[in-house]
Design a protein around this nucleic acid. Structure first.
Length: 459
RNA sequence: GGCCGGGUGGCAGAGUGGUGAUGCAGCGGACUGCAAAUCCGCGUACGUCGGUUCAAUUCCGGCCCCGGCCUCCA
């Protein structure tokens, strides 16, 4: 089955044909490091991690570039507010970002370039744009001249007229055209800045992605991803800069994940209804957060709810329960099941892939002999690996507790209670056995009697 | 106002021109000392009004509702 991807550029599902099948390139807009990652940041990280996993199974080499934006006015503001040096803020936030998404089983990208390490490339690009007549200097700024580009607006399907009509912000006086956007702007001494032909300044928002994608993937590359909120203006402007500077096409397939809502409402800081990834990791395992995210197709709006997280956890409980029964049986070395590959190759249909996970777990539960169990286990794990879940030992999964303790029952306490209950059961003292079980249940520990003895899990 | 995405059973959420999504919840059965887990079985659906068609939840159009974006910037 060929890989098809919904391409924002064409507004339909396109068969994916890489420029060079030996080396597929993907660029995804990464975080601006001024604050903890929230669930809105986590969605593209998880979605494109799944795409990356899929691509690595389809092509021999995949170069996945995800940038770190470490120069930005939000960072400057944060530094001004807290009095901390910018580098301290960006370093710390970058580390927290890495720590957070690692718990979501997101693989590191092949290359993670930082904007401040690529100022020279940006300057070169801006100089080229000026030389070709696509950009101009004005009052220490360098602006991209939108009317100079014929196809501007192709990605977001906006016409110049529309944008003029929609303009509701006071236009800076140095702009020749209200739609022109900043490539470079002057910095005051208290702000980060670099020497440039136009004086000391700093880059505009969009130029870094053009510069870094070009350096690591080439001027024309396969896939560019990000959140739907970036289609305009960010990605539109990236295209304008890159196409005009390079005289070549830019990204060929544009993928955008849908918006994020919380309990049915738009997620926003003013409503206060957003969660950081770290906050969620305090109350649920990373895999549950990840699976919850993947339970809605990436292109759809995603509604984050407490119930959704609970359901994702229940799903993983079911899958890990199946695996728990076969811990002693090595998984067969098998390729991911065809139906799971097919689901993901159809524009990353993760909800359908998850439904197949359930079917695979059912088959594992029903497998009669060791060979069948080994094969079913292998298939389930191979399928789950594509989605980046079921990566841990089942016992570890069932013993997960919130950071900072939880119910206070140690594993030794639990084992002791189980032993005591076993004695009661041997003596057919059902009242005592049930009392112990009930007591544990009230403290969040559920017992399950099976042929191989009693197992337990925290809920 | 312009542009875009969406409205599926109690809930979440795929998909399809004519049979089954899947999971959770619910109901019945097997298993169990009783449970839990597991297995077997059951039920409920496609916003609305028209059109196309032998046949529409699926295609087309109107309407209603929901969500988002609309410039370098708070």
């Amino acid at each position: 089955m060929p890989l098809v991807l919904y391409n924002t550029l064409t507004r339909k599902k396109d068969v994916f044909e890489p420029l060079n099948p030996d080396r597929v390139g993907m660029y995804v807009c990464g975080p601006t490091v001024y604050d903890r990652a929230h669930i809105g940041n986590a969605r593209p990280v998880i979605v494109f991690d799944v795409l990356y996993r899929l691509l690595t199974r389809l092509y021999p080499q995949v170069t996945y570039v995800r940038n770190i934006t470490d120069v930005d006015d939000k960072i400057n503001q944060r530094a001004k507010d807290s009095g901390e040096p910018i580098s301290v803020i960006t370093e710390r936030t970058t580390k927290m970002f890495h720590d957070d998404i690692a718990e979501l089983n997101a693989a590191p990208p092949t290359i993670e370039p930082r904007a401040t390490d690529h100022i020279n490339q940006m300057l070169t690009m801006i100089e080229g744009l000026i030389a070709k007549g696509f950009a101009y200097e004005a009052e220490g700024h360098v602006l991209f001249s939108v009317p100079s580009m014929k196809d501007y607006g192709a990605l977001s399907r906006r016409s110049m007229d529309e944008m003029m009509a929609g303009a509701r912000v006071e236009v800076a006086p140095y702009k020749r055209n209200p739609a022109d956007f900043v490539l470079w702007k002057p910095s005051t001494p208290d702000l980060p800045g670099w020497d440039s032909p136009w004086g000391r300044g700093r880059p505009g928002w969009h130029i870094e992605c053009s510069a870094m994608s070009g350096q690591y993937l080439g001027v024309t590359f396969d896939i560019h991803g990000g959140g739907q909120d970036l289609v305009f203006p960010h990605h539109e402007n990236e295209i304008a800069q890159s196409v005009c500077a390079n005289g070549a096409p830019f990204a060929r397939y544009w993928l955008h994940n849908g918006y994020l809502m919380v309990e049915g409402e738009k997620m926003s800081k003013s409503l206060g209804n957003f969660f950081t990834v770290r906050e969620l990791l305090e109350v649920a395992p990373g895999e549950a957060i990840r699976l919850a995210m993947l339970s809605t197709h990436y292109h759809q709006p995603f509604d984050w709810t407490a119930d959704g997280l609970k359901q994702a956890r229940a799903t993983l409980d079911r899958l890990y329960t199946a695996l728990r029964g076969v811990v002693d049986i090595p998984a067969a070395e098998v390729a991911a099941p065809i139906e799971v590959m097919a689901a993901l190759e159809d524009d990353l249909n993760t909800p359908l892939a998850i439904s197949h996970l359930h079917e695979l777990a059912g088959k594992l539960n029903k497998a009669a002999d060791t060979a069948a169990k080994a094969r079913a286990k292998g298939l389930l794990l191979a399928a789950a690996d594509l989605l980046g879940v079921l990566k841990q030992d089942p016992e570890a999964w069932f013993r997960w507790q919130p950071a900072g303790g939880g119910n206070g029952l140690s594993e030794a306490d639990i084992e002791a209670a189980i032993t005591a209950r076993l004695d009661a059961r041997k003596a057919k003292n059902w009242a005592e056995a049930d009392r112990i079980r009930k007591d544990l249940a009230e403290q969040g520990v559920v017992l399950e009697d099976g042929p191989a003895g009693t197992s337990w899990k925290r809920v």
